[in-house]
Design a protein around this nucleic acid. Structure first.
Lengths: 218, 218
DNA sequence: TAGATTGTTAATCGATTAACAATC
DNA sequence: TAGATTGTTAATCGATTAACAATC
């Protein structure tokens, strides 16, 4: 794995998808695949796949293609999913509850080590085997456990103050489910925004445009 | 609003974000804004904002800028959020429950008119004032109500069969929360994939790359 | 070896940024 | 009017696709 630093965002965003397809092929017992065949399965060009992979190194073999298990492991290593960074969740309402139970954090590079809320009705409840802690315990917890990522499942209006505080407690990245655009406020802080509302509105545009002219936009 | 057809995907994806910022400005009582000032707030270039908006028409005025309320309404109209398409949800587990209660569908172009599940423990329960129906009632419901969008909150392995069935029942678009890549399978069907697992892995990559060299990638 | 398929360079395409005349 | 800011064309930048020599 070389040349890790200068890889463009579009390439990085495609890596998890490669990982998914390779996992499926691996589970089907397929041993090798060519960029051509993978490209047809994924709806990409073979050229793009080879370009993407060669940002990180030459994982293939001329005349043969790629070994699926090896490539799967390489991409996992590039993503860093074996590192298991410590994550905490802020906000255990409906959405937080669902995210905490629905996602397999362990397979995606994280351990969810704490869930916090300030609603007394929620504090103390069990979410997937984890007891929700009171937000007042957050400082002490962070000093002791040193989590690096915070998952924000709180109302948008509290996003900024929470982010500021969490950064002061050593948080280096956010998985942000609030409307508030965390991105751009801080340097050297990783942010992954999940703007569900934006996504829904994009679908709305598509639906209305499709029905206007009966054709696909993309 | 002209030239609706040939607008590129990156532009469309930015529209909801413009809408959010304009809503905030509107609520703050600001009346007008220049592309320059909006660009600084949003972290874009003024040029990009003007280019984006001019895909749909000239909403500004030389020497003045843009009227916030008017532009807000125009973008809402472009997205079609006043159309209120009928949507149904398939799967009322943790994630479905959270999505159904968390999102304001009415403000984003949809009415959630039905929630379906095949788990007898869930059927009949109340989710935000809506009673979960049995999946066996789906056919009849669709024939009667003619929903256009389905929100898939089911396990990935059932995504394909459900999608096929829903399309036969008249569904024209999916908000897809499963791992399964719906996109590309069907023509003339709108798909908005929300791959939470991919998002988390992208964050994982960022976290590990940041800590490697202490610098931002983007 | 011959055929297949990579890694990589070059060409193309599309999106973003810059520049500026038009005009409020 | 003069200043500000748009709409729009041109220039740049970056990402995708095509081509092909290298090589398994």
């Amino acid at each position: 794995m070389r040349n890790n630093n200068q890889v463009s965002v579009p390439v990085i965003k495609r890596l998890p998808r490669y990982h998914r397809y390779l996992e499926e092929l691996k589970n089907m017992g397929v041993v090798r695949i060519s960029s051509k065949e993978l490209s047809m399965r994924m709806g990409l060009t073979a050229s793009q796949i080879r370009q993407d992979l060669n940002c990180f190194g030459g994982f293939g073999q001329q005349g043969y293609g790629y070994n699926i298990e090896q490539l799967y492991n390489e991409i996992g290593a590039i993503l860093g999913i074996d590192k298991r960074s410590k994550a905490i969740m802020i906000g255990a309402g409906n959405l937080g509850h669902a995210i905490a139970t629905h996602l397999h954090f362990e397979n995606r590079g994280f351990d969810l080590i704490g869930i916090f809320d300030n609603n007394p009705n929620v504090v103390g409840t069990d979410i997937g085997g984890r007891i929700v802690m009171n937000s007042s315990e957050l400082d002490e917890f962070c000093k002791k456990e040193k989590p690096v990522v915070a998952i924000l499942c709180i109302p948008s209006e509290y996003a900024e103050e929470n982010a500021d505080k969490l950064i002061s407690l050593g948080i280096k990245g956010f998985w942000n489910f609030t409307q508030y655009d965390l991105i751009r406020k801080y340097k050297d802080i990783a942010v992954e925004n999940v703007h569900l509302g934006d996504s829904l509105m994009t679908l709305c545009y598509q639906i209305n445009t499709f029905s206007d002219n009966g054709e696909e936009i993309k």
